[in-house]
């Protein structure tokens, strides 16, 4: 769907995006992560063709970004606004027409979106009379109108109450089911764990993590398993330490031990096991660890995947 190949963007001699490559697959919700100032917004602006990369290329369905192919991309920026003295439906018709719909079709699509967002009765009121949350919903509609194939959302859940967060998530699921691909940039790591299959994390313009979210969490976790059982699992072969958790036990494994061998030992010891899982690190902790320790910035010595390796992978 979207392929970003080795792109570089410099401002005043400083590489804000430095040899970044990744791929977003059709129909997936892909997370773009990184601390503030990492280069995420610049990267998104290049994907939306607002900025041109100094080198590298961005492909949408195998075609370079630019021209009318960009009409298939919609972007909801983090810092967003609306025309205040017009009605939501006028805003949506304007965006719809700009995205190639006829005025009639744009009005119909706009009204349907407002209906879905539970804003139908506000369709003809001035935007400035709407609450902040309602305005955020209208902004979301401006991104959804025209049925884009790639939806780029920058912090879409910020400021939403739980009900509206749920509504947004439902809408994302609907769009995904309809074949829309989503690139989600957020600092809400719980949402990434909940919604996204894969992610790219950049720091200081470099890509420092790229791949499956589940793999990151496992990769950066301690070599451990979590077990819920009827008593404390003492003296298990291959385990060098035990920590009590919230009703369960975290078992620290010796380097030579594997989760499978420890599970066999636990069963053999006659414990009543309710659950057994490989210990994962919350994504938020992975984020903090990678950023704080500067992992991946040393050309692959500390990070799991190197830009060069990914580029080579893409070439293969």
């Amino acid at each position: 769907m979207l392929e970003v190949r080795d792109i570089v963007k410099t401002f005043d001699g400083r590489a804000v995006v430095n040899r970044v490559s990744f791929e977003v697959r059709p129909g997936e919700i892909f997370a773009l992560l990184g601390p503030n100032g990492a280069g995420k917004t610049t990267l998104i602006r290049m994907i939306t063709d607002i900025l041109k990369p100094d080198s590298g290329e961005i492909l949408l369905d195998g075609t370079r970004i630019g021209g009318d192919s960009r009409r298939q991309i919609a972007y909801l920026p983090e810092e967003r606004g609306l025309y205040r003295r017009v009605s939501p439906i006028e805003v949506l018709v304007y965006y719809g027409e700009l995205k190639g719909l006829s005025a009639h079709a744009a009005r119909a699509a706009g009204l349907a979106l407002l209906e879905r967002m539970e804003l139908a009765e506000w369709a003809t009121k001035q935007v400035q009379t709407l609450s902040k949350g309602m305005q955020q919903k209208v902004q979301f509609c401006t991104a959804l109108i025209g049925e884009p194939r790639l939806l780029i959302l920058d912090e879409p859940f910020t400021g939403l109450d739980p009900l509206n967060t749920q509504l947004f998530e439902e809408l994302l699921a609907e769009r995904r089911a309809a074949g829309c691909t989503v690139l989600l940039s957020t600092h809400q790591m719980n949402k990434v764990e909940e919604l996204c299959d894969r992610a790219l994390m950049i720091n200081r313009g470099h890509m420092v993590l790229y791949g499956s979210v589940r793999d990151f969490r496992r990769q950066y976790a301690d070599h451990a398993v979590t077990v819920r059982c009827d008593r404390r699992p003492d003296a298990v072969a291959g385990v060098h330490g035990i920590a009590a958790g919230d009703g369960d036990w975290k078992l620290m494994l010796e380097p030579a031990a594997s989760p499978q061998s420890v599970l066999r030992e636990l069963v053999a010891s006659g414990l009543g096991i309710e659950s057994f899982s490989i210990a994962n690190l919350p994504l938020e902790d992975v984020f903090v660890k990678v950023v704080r320790e500067g992992l991946g910035l040393d050309h692959g010595q500390s990070g799991p995947l190197l830009p060069d390796e990914i580029v080579k992978g893409a070439a293969r």
Partner: peptide, 15 residues
Amino acid sequence: EEKESRILESLLCAL
């Protein structure tokens, strides 16, 4: 107005 109210970024995706 468009710059101050941050409309431009989403608008520039459409034109």
